[in-house]
Each structure stands twice: as C-alpha cells, then as structure tokens.
Amino acid sequence: MPRATSDARLLIQSLSKAYAATPTNLKIIDMYVVFTVATALIQVAYMGLVGSFPFNSFLSGVLSCIGTAVLAVCLRIQVNKDNKEFKDLPPERAFADFVLCNLVLHLVIMNFLG
C-alpha cells in the first residue's frame, strides 16, 4: 500500500511539474474551464436539493456553463503551440471565433431563460 501511495504521489508530482511548463495563456484557459464546470456543478447540486422547477432556467444555466467550457476547450486546442494541426492559425483568429460563438450561444441561452 505505501508503495502505491508513493507511486501516486510521484505521478502527481511529475504531472504538476510538467504542467508548470505550460504557457500562462493555456493555464488561464484551463482555469476558466475549471471555473465554468464548477459553476455548472453547483447548479446541478442546487437542482438535486430543491427540484428542477423552473426547468428551463436550470437547463439554460447549466448549458451556458457547459457550452462556454466546451468553447474554451476548443480555444485551448487552437491556441496551443504544440498542436501542429492549427500551426498556421493565429491565436487572435481563434479568440475571435471564441467570442463570436459565445455571443451566439448566449443569445440562445437568454431566449431560453424565460
């Protein structure tokens, strides 16, 4: 057992060491994703506690968080310099896409909010 614990600790240490080398802008996006997913989880917890009425408000709240998290992940994929697939795509272009998609997403969310 102690062996396994130390292995796990080693693993985490190496992971965090490797992650520390990640560029800051990617870290920001990662934090943003964590923030939105956490918000979605809190809403789900609230729903579990008091029930799903009004359902459309709950759905729009959660989908707003999840949707923007997915968009942020897409942004991260495009901005990542190690990703050869989007080598030719400037990060500014990716950010513009992110902004546009968010605006469209939230128009729909607001319409659905009731």
């Binding site: 918000t39 809190i42 917890a45 009425f53």
Partner: peptide
Amino acid sequence: EKRPPKELSLAFMGLTLLPFIGFLIG
C-alpha cells in the same frame, strides 16, 4: 409549484460566485 426557501436560493447564488472568485484569485 413548490418553491424552495428564499435563503437557500440566495445561498446558492452566492455559491455560484465562488468559482468566479477562485478564477480571479488564480
């Protein structure tokens, strides 16, 4: 429909702000 008590709802509203504060601290 039966609504939850107001305090609970307000508490959760505050709770949803927590990740945002965490994000800012980060």
